[in-house]
Design a protein around this nucleic acid. Sequence first.
DNA 1: AGTCCATATTTACGCGCGTAAATTATTAAT
DNA 2: ATTAATAATTTACGCGCGTAAATATGGACT
Lengths: 343, 343
Amino acid sequence: MSDSKIRNMDDFASVSGISRPTISKYFNDADSVRKSTRERIEKALARYDYQPNFYAMNQNRRLTKNVGIVIPYMSDPFFAEIARNVENHIIAAGFRPIVLGSQGNPEQEIENLNNLRLLKPAGVLLAPLGRMSDSERIAAFCTEVPTVLFDANIENVGEAFIGSDNNQSIGLIVEYLCRTGEPPAFFEMRKPTNPNALKRRNAYVNSMERSGHKPHLIQVEGEGWDFEEIGFREGSRVLADRTLPTDTILCSNDRLAIGLLSAAYQLGLQVGLGENCALRIAGHDDHPFSRYTCPTLTTVSQDYTSIAKKSAETLFSLIETEQRAQSRETTLFDGRLVMRGSA
Amino acid sequence: MSDSKIRNMDDFASVSGISRPTISKYFNDADSVRKSTRERIEKALARYDYQPNFYAMNQNRRLTKNVGIVIPYMSDPFFAEIARNVENHIIAAGFRPIVLGSQGNPEQEIENLNNLRLLKPAGVLLAPLGRMSDSERIAAFCTEVPTVLFDANIENVGEAFIGSDNNQSIGLIVEYLCRTGEPPAFFEMRKPTNPNALKRRNAYVNSMERSGHKPHLIQVEGEGWDFEEIGFREGSRVLADRTLPTDTILCSNDRLAIGLLSAAYQLGLQVGLGENCALRIAGHDDHPFSRYTCPTLTTVSQDYTSIAKKSAETLFSLIETEQRAQSRETTLFDGRLVMRGSA
DNA sequence: AGTCCATATTTACGCGCGTAAATTATTAAT
DNA sequence: ATTAATAATTTACGCGCGTAAATATGGACT
């Protein structure tokens, strides 16, 4: 295989018989060297499995092909899924994605941005935590690195925002629920961590009033990101009380709905559309798990694909033009009704 | 707040009136400088919010306080949970955790190790992918960096292995199921990706035979890590066939069980212990979601806490003694029966 | 005041790489 | 063969920091 260990680019330059600056050039852009040179390098690369030190590279380059992706929660399948989507676009465009999760912690979010800055990224795609986020420091970061926000908006921070049209999506499912049964109550956290939650609350109220129904907010207590637990605990309480003015509950997101479904099951309440069902439950987001709940969860899917694509494209155009956006544009995609068993 | 931007340690040394090497020493170990000096540094730190370049630090140090944690899948709540647990121990011991997920991809797993190596970690805690893993390259990595394996074993790789005693845990739940109803069939993937799955299969067969029952393996097709989908799809098929010789199914892990529960629900099969139940389903792992399934999932919990603690401690002792383990020790923790609604 | 030890500073070099400028070699075309 | 264009090499420096050795400084003590 290999002779002595290749420890750095100098070593590799020696064994391949090509000067270090040329090797450096090759790794920067393989097509920027003569074809015969490229072949010699690649032959040597096959013999000695050298690869340049990623961090040392980034330390010296003005700008790299790195693109950061920061999401609020790594272990939330919803964010994992959208991050994977964005990642694919980044790779396809010849960039290198670096995904970081903030674990619901605003300090971690800032640290993620700090660490990214050291890698001299060409740009960053950021889905901020929301209410908890240290928006001042995020704004400061955005002045240094071209940043596109997605999923959750922070007013006037970043070059653009791409997300879902909560008005449309909530309107869609409220209309559906009203049309097929009793008008829904809205199940949410009293102090939601996410700006989307507030938008959805307002959208619900507006949508209900527009169709002449009285809105009914079920605002439960709970902190943090353990939404299933909150949905279950508070859902159990609310359902046991039997003070609901309706048999239909629309949850602010699928994870709350998953907890609520579990609570309903344990109280012996049949959920779904049938005659012998006591309750209808709907969610929002089309969480990967929502197709395995019992019954499967009726929800509104966010347009993952479009959000990911548009976010990436917006960032790429910023990177190419090497200038900031003249005006901060907001793009909202429509949700799609996903009818399943629960409502 | 601050005057001109502090760009590096030199700048910060100037404004704080202390020499750069002393600053460097402070950041390495705050107690290694005189108290009065420390106070001066920290006063300057409050004024100018400088922090050293993480990657430049690691480039030059022989050894750092970094500890890598590599898990097979970031968005699997089970691994997310155990990683969080390990992380806390690392922080408590004054080290800096760096968590990386391999997304089920063996190449990503190797790349994660490569990237970690560049950060000169004091040690690494690795939960390998299993069958898919490039065990040769992992072994090569382990000769360079002290590495402790957990969750999934690779024979003779790394300094130690800490995991669950699948024999004990499967024995426990098989015994429970036999005692409280019909002996279980075992639902698993025909070609599991994880070595634990194979151990569990054998443990099931042994356990059944020991108590005089005929084992029955349901080995379903399916690749990858989308276990819920496989559990649902193949579960639907198996249940619809109605060729099962028993009404009790033990799944190789909770994620399969979650899919299977969903399949049973959709086929109108009542799952649980009651007289009018057609099926009992049990899992393994005590996945965070297993308490929200309908019905809640009876399972065996792995001793997260102990595995995380022991893994971290084993690594710390390796780091302290600065030498490799004389012999590769394997530590297995007992599982605990978690009785819920499904069996 | 003088001694000693701990701590701080100065100086100088190294890590693995990017990059610019000047020089030399190669290639393709005239 | 000469020329011009292109590519490669040499040389030299910089990035942000660690670290070692020599030197200088401060405080506690006799």
